[in-house]
Amino acid sequence: MNLSASTQTTLTLFGGVFGVLVLASAIGALLKWRVAHGQPHPVIDNLNSRVNAWWVMVAVIGLAFAFGKGGVIVLFYLISFYALREFMSLAYTRRGDHHAIAVAFFIALPVQYFLIWIDWYGLYAIFIPVYAFLVLPILAAVGGDTQRFLERTSKIQWGLMVCVFCISHVPALLTLQIPGFEGRNLLLIAFLVIVVQGSDVLQYVWGKLFGRHKVAPELSPSKTWEGLIGGVASATALGAALSWATPFTPWQAALMALTICLMGFFGGLVMSAIKRDRGVKDWGTMIEGHGGMLDRLDSVVFAAPVFFHALRYWWTP
């Protein structure tokens, strides 16, 4: 009974997302026809390729959900891998870092996801921040190259923190035992992803329609106060409206949504600062119209661990 109820709720959520995407595609086609008159138009074309990429991303997430826990863990393992590749490709490293980077890719990344698979909370919560953070600088030091050592070490550590540790907290939501919510944890992932990505999309829409005053012109020229306030407020309302699919009451859902939207916003700001520091606009070219994997995920990265621990502290016995 529980299972079929949760499947039904998941399908309803996907149905809603599907409807929004149909609407977005229709608006994009209408803009292309009425405003751009079928001619190339940078903003409208970018909007349309973003919407198209969303179709693909929703399909991929849907496929992973269909396979349950294993599918979600494999999906986020791959997401972490591509995110880490984008991060390390941009970071300044030297020959002496080779072993440390190899360990990050081939040991730290699989071990973290394996620990989530076997649900060993006590170790996956500290594996990267304690053991990887101590072993990586040891490997770099053994490499013998001291030039810009602290900077190089911190870059590899940060890459693991952001791309593996933080992202792995999305599938880790499946391991939480919330009384009365058993067997429905996929909905927690759906809630997190819909609210955080919805906040990104709504900030984009509000910003494009009403944006005047820039929040951080140095970091992210496209972020405006109008977009931020409108986007976060409407995504918080969206979160409250989704409370029926979660273990939260409406006001709890709104507070959760507000928290993860703000973490997501500041996460985007931090990741932009790293990109500006490296002199690039996007992390990669993997997702048409969005940039790289990290460009799409920067807000999830910062929201996921906070959402996970808030749930774990207040909702699990």
Binding site: F81, R85, M88, S89, R95, H98, I101, A102, F105
Partner: peptide, 18 residues
């Protein structure tokens, strides 16, 4: 760009950088 970082001379394991 970057292939030197993927497999520097004398290293055995390539790292998957873009």
């Amino acid at each position: 760009e970057n292939l030197k970082r993927v497999l520097p001379k004398g290293m055995l394991v390539p790292i998957p950088l873009a």
